[in-house]
Simulated assay, not measured.
Amino acid sequence: MHLLIPVIAYVVLFGSAPAATAPPGTRHAAGHQHSVVMNPAEHRSPAVPGAASYRVPIDTGAIRVLTAFSPPRTRYGRGHLGVDLAAAQGGSVLAAGAGVVRFAGPVAGRGVVVLVHPDGISTEYEPVTVAVVAGQRVVAGQRIGTVRGVHRGCAPAGCLHWGARRGGAYLDPLSLLRPLGVVRLLPWN
């Protein structure tokens, strides 16, 4: 029953159950926790006309990933559909990109904010004390709440769970911060 309530909450909020699709090479052992430190200035998406620009959703000198993205192997299997970033209680939660607030309120006892971005990606932030309302437009870097509460995978340390998806497919939100790199055209044959 405890697993059913979060699934029902996601279906109500997002219209479908979590999907198990992910790009090749993104699978990690379920529940695997590790810490990665990154400099946010080096991890912003490029300013390409027509492309969304994303930023780290917390305001710190460097980000530390406590739990990495780990999609489940089956539709309802075990996994981690986002990343947990080290964040102090009361720290600001920022919009990762410009968009519209789709949902702002409690889910299963935790504050959640969901933003929909112009490129069709939605980003999710929890646990937060919400500072925005559904339908509100936000810009990248705008404060949308504060870290308040505990995310299941981070106790006793504080963290922000940050998720991203396009349609029914969850994405590694850190991939939003990486530029495409070198693009090579290959022949059809």
Rank of each mutant, 00 (worst) to 15 (best):
H2Q: 12
L3N: 12
L3K: 11
P6I: 08
V7E: 04
I8V: 14
V11L: 15
V12E: 12
L13D: 09
L13C: 01
G15P: 07
G15Q: 09
P18S: 11
T21L: 12
G25I: 07
T26H: 10
A29K: 13
G31N: 05
Q33E: 13
V36W: 07
V36R: 10
V37A: 09
V37W: 02
E42R: 13
E42H: 10
R44I: 12
R44N: 08
V48G: 03
V48K: 06
P49S: 12
P49N: 06
G50H: 07
A51P: 00
A51M: 10
A51Y: 10
R55G: 10
R55T: 09
V56Q: 03
V56H: 01
P57M: 01
I58M: 02
V65L: 13
V65R: 06
T67E: 12
T67C: 01
S70K: 07
P71Y: 05
P71A: 07
P72A: 09
T74F: 14
T74L: 13
R75E: 15
Y76S: 15
Y76H: 14
G79M: 01
G82F: 06
D84N: 10
L85I: 14
A86Q: 12
A87C: 08
Q89C: 05
A95P: 04
A95Y: 04
A96S: 13
A96C: 04
G97V: 00
A98F: 00
A98Q: 14
G99W: 01
R102T: 13
A104E: 09
A104T: 01
G105M: 03
P106A: 15
P106V: 06
V107D: 03
A108R: 08
A108D: 12
A108H: 06
A108K: 03
G109T: 11
R110H: 02
V112N: 03
V112E: 04
V113L: 04
V113H: 06
L115F: 07
V116A: 15
V116E: 15
P118A: 15
P118D: 14
G120W: 01
I121M: 06
S122C: 02
T123D: 04
V128Y: 00
T129F: 00
T129C: 00
T129Q: 09
V130Y: 03
V132S: 02
A134C: 07
A134N: 07
